[in-house]
Design a binder for these strands. Structure first.
Lengths: 118, 118
DNA sequence: ACGCAGTTTCGATGGATGTCGAACATCGCA
DNA sequence: TGCGATGTTCGACATCCATCGAAACTGCGT
């Protein structure tokens, strides 16, 4: 049965031109999701369950949905696992420099942030 | 009575180093507030009631409060009116390039946005 | 075939948020 | 001194949102 190999439908993503800035900002304005994006920034792809966040699996799934529907990440299904990746190129094309700037700002002030690195 | 010249206390603002990125992103992730910021971007200062937004005065006041408490704007009292201004320098110092990038992104895709200006 | 591991969906819940109208405060001006 | 203009605060309300637990689904290994 080649036609129904995949029962669960592929997750839907917005087209690049459909990505809304306010949706993206809202998606990034959450600690858990910001952590996810930061991790994804360093690695090209990663399975859902392997993120260093301390929330229930269902909550995590919710956050991935928000990130996906806002156009920040892509999700690819492989067997049982779902791999997530940043839509770096798409975001760069639509909002040049945005992701870099936001992540740099968070790196400066968020986690261990060098107290006076200016 | 020099000590109680000003009855209504000056609005409180967070110190520059206290400005939180996620708070800023959240503040910007609202159409009304984004409009306010965009207008403020063009003019150095402006009275509250003169913004081209279509909400009740009390709602507007609420949005100004959110913007102020997140560190995006300053509010100065002059007589009856309250003037708002972007904390451009503070934001630039704390999150270099952030405001420019976000506003540029919104200009590209938000209002009249040249359909295919790439 | 069975069960386990990884994820999503559903339902519920408490808290934040955007919105409004009414009431209050402040200042300038007639 | 009283009125109008400008904003804020308060209370209410509907909605959204982050979170959880339980249930269901999918595919792999035993």
């Amino acid at each position: 049965m080649a036609r129904s190999t995949r029962r669960r439908p592929d997750p839907t993503h917005p087209a690049t031109e459909e990505i809304d800035l306010l949706d993206v900002l809202h998606a990034l304005a959450d600690p858990t999701r910001m952590t996810i994006v930061r991790v994804l920034r360093a690695e090209p792809e990663r399975a859902c369950g392997t993120f260093p966040v301390d929330v229930a699996p269902s909550t995590l799934s919710h956050h991935f949905k928000v990130l996906r529907e806002s156009g920040v990440i892509t999700q690819r299904e492989e067997a049982n696992r779902r791999f997530s990746a940043l839509r770096t190129a798409d975001l760069e094309h639509r909002f040049p420099g945005l992701l870099d700037t936001v992540l740099a700002a968070h790196a400066r002030t968020g986690p261990g942030a060098t107290p006076d690195a200016s």
